[in-house]
């Protein structure tokens, strides 16, 4: 059967892995290629590499690093950060990335999602949605590394990007990100039920039960975490054994 995916996320700045706590206080967690190889051996199902400074500082994406990663690992990976055109995506896919993740550029220009799906196929177009709940606005979509609230309600935006051709949604709850208090189960479940494509839960993983909840309660297709894995607070083999005992379909 198709199994739920465990996805370590490597935030990249200047060719190194970092992880922000609530997008701030960045700590250095190592060399991306070494970490990627290690994760593949540990049983990670996929990897995500986000060039976290690209949007803010208008940096060019990191094709050379992507090539180096593709050369060394034999599991799929997604790259994102600062992607704003069909040409950007072509460079990354030709360098060996399997999927690209777009975020702010989709908000600026939703037609980009359609152009990418038409040119490269929906299967390689992941739309990353940063979402935050406030009493005033409910669950809204945020852009530019989570600094600006958009007009979009989260569910409406998820449906919109799937209609445009997104093949997957990476949903990050900014309320939960960095807290280690668990994924945002309510919005993850709502998005997963609202769209036909796979949904990756992201933000808030702190222990093994949080992953079980994301799959069993929120019906996520995949779950993503960063610092929890990078700082060896939780091992992937241990996590996968636990999930299997919890009745989650998992690859071991």
């Amino acid at each position: 059967m198709l199994t739920k995916r465990i996805i370590p996320c490597l935030d990249i700045k200047d060719g190194r892995t970092v992880k922000g706590i609530q997008f701030e206080n960045i700590r250095d967690a190592g060399d991306p290629v070494e970490l990627a190889k290690w994760y593949a051996e540990q049983g990670a199902d996929e990897l995500v590499f986000l060039d976290i400074t690209a949007t803010n500082e208008e940096r060019k994406t990191f094709a050379e690093l992507v090539r180096d990663i593709a050369r060394h690992i034999d599991i799929p990976f997604t790259v994102g950060g600062g992607i704003s055109s069909v040409a950007d995506v072509e460079v990354l896919l030709m360098a060996g990335a399997d999927k690209v993740s777009i975020n702010s550029s989709a908000i600026r220009n939703p037609e980009l999602v359609r152009e990418l799906a038409d040119r490269f196929g929906s299967q390689c177009v992941t739309v990353a949605i940063d979402t935050k709940y406030t009493e005033v606005s409910g669950w809204k979509v945020y852009t530019r590394a989570g600094t600006i609230e958009t007009e979009w309600a989260t569910i409406a935006w998820a449906k919109k990007v799937v209609e445009l051709g997104a093949g997957e949604i990476l949903l990050t709850s900014m309320n939960n990100d960095g807290t280690k208090a668990g994924f945002a189960l309510d919005i993850t479940k709502a998005v997963s039920e609202a769209v036909s494509v796979p949904v990756i839960a992201s933000g808030g993983a702190g222990n093994m039960q949080h992953f079980a909840d994301a799959f069993n309660s929120a019906h996520a297709d995949a779950a993503l975490a960063a610092s929890l894995f990078h700082f060896r607070e939780l091992g992937i083999p241990e996590l996968k054994r636990f999930l299997k005992l919890q009745g989650v379909d998992i690859r071991i």
Binding site: M1, Q123, V197, P198, R251
Partner: peptide
């Protein structure tokens, strides 16, 4: 009724 694309590890 399952998610499409069929994406991930299968047997």
């Amino acid at each position: 009724d399952l998610k499409v694309p069929h994406m991930g590890w299968n047997q």
